[in-house]
Design a protein around this nucleic acid. Structure first.
Lengths: 165, 165
DNA sequence: TTTTAATGTAATGGC
DNA sequence: GCCATTACATTAAT
């Protein structure tokens, strides 16, 4: 049966074959030499490699650069260079909740910011969603509430400050 | 059949009314603070009533403006939005980057898709933009890159298909 | 019509 | 669980 160890294609070819073979793009090629251990993410099953972009060298970049830009570019280059590219391969497809689902989630949130596992499971069943999604939804919802609190507090402080002067 | 949503203690509404009344679901009942959350948008904040400066019209501002001054103009717009301006509500005025700003942003993007806060702050300072604008620009730029990758992959698959037949 | 700045929020990873 | 940060789907300005 399915193991939690998932075989995922590296984005770079290690065998000298072109990156964009049909099989590679469709994720159908066998005999990949390097495999990575990744979390179990069925929705990433047939994910294609993302390819890679070769950045300009420092020299090439500076060659392109005119006098005006040079200071800034040089200044920023050291910090910018060599930072890796995160492609977030295998990210779960964004869930699009229906308005009814949102309304019901909101109505629960109104009375309880922290529904326990039982409630989440029940919601999942009734709304035809995974319990994971419910959990994440409440987490993001709490963050949103907190943001709005911070903002209104900021406005109140600002208002009080202005009125004092 | 009893559902956990209705039955469990911690989701019972504090006022004793059922959770799924029509009003609740439609958000028409009282005490729904969470629906009144307003994003913090200083440029659209016309209720605050701070200041008595009559803002320039959009046309007047544009008349003053050439390419070099555009950034400043954007800043003035933003200030204007703090006053009761009627010709725009609720959304930040679209920033018009100069070609020089774009060039520099692109040159950084070439070597780093994910500039950290220090780089963004430095860019902001040098380009006379808010750090927010820089952040958003890189987000949109990454999305654009990803889109182009998807498209070229699609074209390559299609091409390979045609050549195979 | 096309491109892209701006927005809202689902998803991820670190702690 | 929180938090910061990201991708992604949309909207709207150009």
């Amino acid at each position: 049966m399915a193991s939690l160890i998932y075989g995922v294609k590296d984005v770079r070819p290690v065998d000298g074959k072109p990156i964009f073979t049909i099989d590679r793009i469709l994720g159908l090629d066998e005999g990949e030499q390097y495999r990575k251990i990744k979390p179990y993410r069925p929705w990433a099953d047939s994910e294609a490699g993302q390819g890679h972009v070769v950045p300009k060298t420092k020299e090439a970049l500076e060659k392109d650069t005119n006098e005006k830009e040079r200071t800034l570019t040089t200044q920023l280059f050291t910090e910018s260079y060599q930072k890796p590219l995160k492609w977030y391969i295998g990210r779960r497809p964004r869930t699009a909740f229906t308005s009814l689902q949102i309304e019901i989630l909101e109505s629960i949130f109104q009375v309880n910011y922290y529904p326990g596992i039982d409630v989440r499971e029940e919601l999942a069943k009734q709304l035809h969603l995974d319990e994971d999604r419910i959990q994440i939804w409440f987490q993001n919802r709490r963050a949103k509430l907190k943001r709005s609190h911070r903002e209104s507090q900021f406005l109140m402080v600002k208002k009080a400050f202005v009125e004092d002067n």
